[in-house]
Design a protein around this nucleic acid. Structure first.
Length: 552
DNA sequence: TTGCAGTCAATATC
DNA sequence: GATATTGACTGCAA
């Protein structure tokens, strides 16, 4: 029935979810394998977008890039991805095959970015390794990404780093030439790759490109060439500009986008970059620990007290949350790869699945486990607040009342008793919470923070009220989360929340996580640190009364 | 609206 | 000079 429906009423590609696209990808693969190219066009017409992409995908394949051999050349291979039997292997094939061909399939693409004015004409002189920015086969890469099997992002980045360092190739060159990204992004990507399953299609693209690049036998050579050309162009420009101070124009090589490339127009618009002082960061971290999702009100207060723009505070929270999250991912992966060398699956893969947990961290589990929560006092009422206010399990052992906003008043000005804002929060309730404390990860301890203390106060206060989670507490910061989870409607979340193991799987923690945690403090801390956001999501989901299909 | 993912690009650090 | 960090921005989804 589904097939019939799909065949007769295919949805346009753009309307399909990732899952929804799967059948089409499978069909495409099947078509490629069995029917050859002829069929696509027809289908394409019917399918519109799908077709479109599908068709375009054909290009590289048809260009003789398909070889019967499919052995990945380099070590940074893709992980097996056992679960999607056919598509996986097939796609792996395509990927590898594609790159093994001299034809410049992927690299040439680059998003349909219109030639930016400021962007040096990348296409300018298509070097051996076509810039990703030049693009005409933009869709190809997207197709590949969509069809790509699960890749071992960590392994790929590791390998890329090796190759780059071994050959003395810079991130900038690599990023701009191969990935179409800036140096900073490349650095970030290489240092903190997210697991495949956590990536969006767009986010997967760089990894696919990297994989392709790794598979390319001439990858280094090409980059070296680029490097040379770049240098040459640079010298040339230098010479010419010396004689004539003509504004440096985009290098003919098409690569040198670094500086000078997009100067003029921006000069005026440039606004100074905000650089937060350490104390400010500290304060924000404290606030985060108290409340990862501060209400607008809290944000305002923070902004006021820190003398920052609210947008800055908002941005900071967004960035911090997402970076913390990534930190976790990477640690998971690292821990995972260490822990089980022989494990077949890629770490990223592993982390995705619910692992048979053994979470040693009782904290986590416990927390989430019980406690009828009290309404979350979050004044405002964002959706999240709403969710929370439904009250739920939670706050573990603590008294329900604590969630209250009693402390609110203090919020504004009173720095919690001096230097220890954070602990205060905990102290507030004086409840038995996990012991200690030391703040964690990101924010190292509740160190003596002069002002910040005060600054953080608001948040702290608020939270103290609500969660009182000693931010610092490593694993038990979970508690923090627990607080938040207090909002979990007893109806939906419970099941998941109650089982210690479930929490762990929510994290996507590798099976051995528990064990590792116990001995790896920093790791625990970070995990705990992130619990808040997870709980938050749980809350949200719970509030929507979704089925307990937690996917984190 | 809010939160997030992905990036850019300015700075900081090595 | 290369790499790492991080505030800000864009686009998308719920």
């Amino acid at each position: 029935g589904s097939v019939s429906d799909m065949l007769s009423r295919p949805k346009p590609w753009s309307k399909l979810t990732q899952k929804g696209r799967e059948p089409f990808i499978r069909m495409q693969l099947w078509l490629n394998g069995e029917l050859g190219q002829g069929v696509l066009p027809v289908q394409g017409q019917q399918q519109g977008p799908v077709l479109h992409s599908v068709t375009s995908l054909q290009d590289p394949l048809q260009q003789g890039c398909v070889s019967s051999e499919s052995t990945p050349k380099t070590s940074a291979s893709c992980s097996p991805a056992p679960e999607s039997p056919m598509s996986s292997s097939e796609s792996v094939k395509s990927l590898t095959e594609l790159v093994q061909q001299p034809c410049p399939p992927i690299e040439t693409s680059k998003d349909s970015k219109p030639p930016e004015p400021s962007d040096p004409p990348a296409s300018d002189s298509q070097p051996a390794t076509p810039l990703p920015l030049s693009g005409h086969s933009a869709l190809s890469i997207q197709e590949l990404v969509a069809m790509s099997p699960e890749l071992d992002t960590y392994g790929i980045t590791k390998r890329v780093k090796e190759v780059l360092t071994d050959n003395n190739l810079g991130q900038r060159l690599f990023g701009e030439t191969i990935l179409g990204l800036t140096q900073g992004s490349v650095s970030d990507l290489l240092a903190r790759p997210k697991p495949w399953h956590k990536l969006s299609l767009k986010g997967r693209e760089p990894f696919v490109r990297m994989q392709l690049w790794l598979n390319d036998p001439n990858n280094v050579e090409k980059l070296m060439d680029m490097k040379r050309m770049e240098k040459k162009a640079y010298m040339k420009r230098r010479h010419s500009s010396v004689s004539d101070s003509q504004p440096c124009e985009p290098p003919s090589v098409g690569i040198d986008y670094s500086q000078g490339a997009s100067p003029q127009p921006q000069h005026q618009l440039k606004k100074p970059r905000v650089v937060l002082a350490p104390e400010e960061k500290e304060a924000l971290k404290r606030a985060y620990q108290q409340k990862p999702y501060p209400s607008p009100k809290t944000i305002e207060e923070l902004a006021t007290q820190l003398n920052l723009k609210t947008s800055t505070v908002i941005n900071w929270f967004h960035n911090y949350r997402s970076r913390i999250r990534r930190e976790l991912f990477i640690e998971e992966i690292q821990a995972g790869s260490q822990g089980q060398a022989g494990a077949s699956d890629s770490p990223s893969a592993r982390s995705g699945r619910a692992a048979p947990s053994s979470e040693g961290d009782s904290c986590d589990g416990v927390e989430a486990a019980e406690g009828p929560g009290a309404a979350d006092a979050e004044e405002s009422g964002g959706p999240a607040a709403a969710a929370k206010s439904q009250g739920g399990p939670a706050e573990a052992a603590a008294a329900p009342e604590e969630r209250e906003e009693a402390p609110r008043p203090a919020e504004k000005a009173e720095p919690p008793p001096s230097g220890t804002p954070v602990p205060d929060a905990a102290a507030d309730e004086g409840r038995p919470r996990a012991p200690p404390p030391p703040p964690e990860g990101p924010a190292d301890g509740p160190g003596p923070v002069p002002n910040p203390a005060a600054a953080a106060a608001p948040a702290a206060g608020e939270d103290a009220a609500t969660s009182a989670a000693p931010p610092g507490e490593g694993p038990c910061r979970a508690r923090d989360g627990a607080d938040r989870s207090s909002a979990l409607p007893s109806t939906s979340a419970p099941a998941a929340a109650r089982r210690p193991s479930s929490l762990q799987s929510l994290f996507g923690l590798p099976e051995a996580a528990g064990a590792r945690d116990s001995r790896d403090n920093p790791l625990r801390k970070k995990k705990a640190a992130n619990l808040n956001s997870i709980i938050h999501r749980l809350e949200k989901a719970a509030s929507r009364e979704e089925p307990i299909e937690w996917e984190f």
